[in-house]
């Protein structure tokens, strides 16, 4: 066990000796290598090994994730000059931000997008209940077809959707024309652009929701349906009185995941509308707003404040999830 201490250049080496020595209850000098009685002590005697195991990951996470989070929190309180360099600005960025119509515009667009994507969940519940019918043939094929958009590259599928939504030669407006509707120029009209992006968002997340819900359905004991059938309950009644209530935790989970990922909207918006689209400033999402301030306008302090607001919103949603999830687990 002590042989490792001769290995040079390990990033954990300063900590290693200490970790081996400060084990509770071990003699101050003879820790490593000594005979250790009982399995418990053996586990405690891992010595330097754990540090070797975790060092690369913990170092990377600290440098590239943990430190940046602290730094962003600090940046949100600073003002950045055009040529780099910063001054402490207190809450000035937040004051400006909360008075900035762009924040409410991007928040509104994000909420509209989220609301439309959430419409997919009732559809997914219905589809999942069909997919779970006992002995359904081609179930594997259906799963693949519905899941396909979820794994496809957003920027690549955006290309085809751009054409489908095209106001002059797009298929969608052709289809709408057949039923007598004069479709808008989806991609260059504010509002319609958000709806268009949300339709793609719904399309790409539907399969994921369906699969998670189908897994939830599997956990409902089939006896409940058999009993209900003996009582003469109709399919619809069974769906309402057994499926929906017992599936509520899964539905809730999928809703939270959908809300969180919808608030991260960037790829589809950027790729469907295109970075030079004049409608983008009116149709931007929160994350696009962040991207624009941080990387196009190079206003790091302001962008950091936007990032912290997104963090706060997601934090609230996550907290709600934890609360309710705990209640359901205890309620069982």
């Amino acid at each position: 066990m002590t042989s490792t201490s001769s290995r040079p250049g390990s990033p954990a080496s300063p900590l290693r000796g200490r970790a081996a020595r400060v084990r509770p209850g071990s003699p101050p000098d003879g820790g490593a290598g000594g005979p250790t009685p009982g399995p418990r002590r053996r586990i405690a005697g891992d010595g330097a090994w754990p540090w070797l195991f975790i060092a690369p990951l913990v170092a990377g996470i600290s440098v590239f994730y943990f430190w940046p989070v602290l730094q962003t929190a600090f940046y949100s309180l600073t003002d950045w000059g055009v040529f780099g360099g910063w001054t402490f600005a207190g809450f000035a960025n937040y004051v400006t931000l909360f008075a900035d119509p762009a924040l409410y515009l991007s928040l509104g667009n994000t909420l509209l997008y989220t609301a439309i994507v959430l419409l997919g969940i009732p559809i997914a519940v219905y589809l999942a209940s069909l997919l779970n019918l006992p002995g359904l043939r081609f179930a594997g094929l259906y799963r693949v077809l519905f899941f396909l958009p979820y794994v496809a590259m957003p920027t690549a599928v955006a290309m085809v959707w751009r054409v489908i939504f095209n106001g002059d030669f797009g298929l969608l407006n052709h289809a709408l024309a057949i039923v007598g509707i004069d479709g808008p120029y989806w991609i260059s009209t504010p509002g319609a652009a958000t709806v268009a992006v949300a339709i793609v968002g719904l399309w790409s997340s539907l399969g994921f929701s369906m699969i998670v819900l189908a897994a939830g359905l599997k956990n409902i004991p089939p006896e409940m349906y058999e009993a209900a059938e003996l009582d003469g309950a109709t399919r619809w009644r069974q769906f309402r009185s057994i499926t929906v209530p017992l599936l509520t935790p899964s539905i809730f989970f999928v809703t939270i995941i959908t809300v969180i990922s919808s608030f991260q909207l960037f790829d589809l918006l950027y790729a469907i509308l295109g970075s030079s689209n004049p409608v983008l400033p009116k149709s931007m999402s929160l994350v696009y707003f962040f991207y624009r301030e941080g990387f196009v306008n190079n206003d790091k302090g302001y962008a950091a404040a936007i990032a912290m607001v997104i963090f706060l919103i997601i934090g609230i949603v996550t907290a709600i999830q934890f609360r309710l999830q705990k209640r359901w687990v205890q309620g069982d």
Binding site: F66, Q71, T72, Q264, V287, A303, A304, I306, F311
Partner: peptide
């Protein structure tokens, strides 16, 4: 390490 799971990626992107 796990605290990072709750942080949206925009928060560490700038740094």
């Amino acid at each position: 390490v796990l605290s990072i799971l709750m942080v949206p990626s925009q928060v560490y992107l700038l740094s």
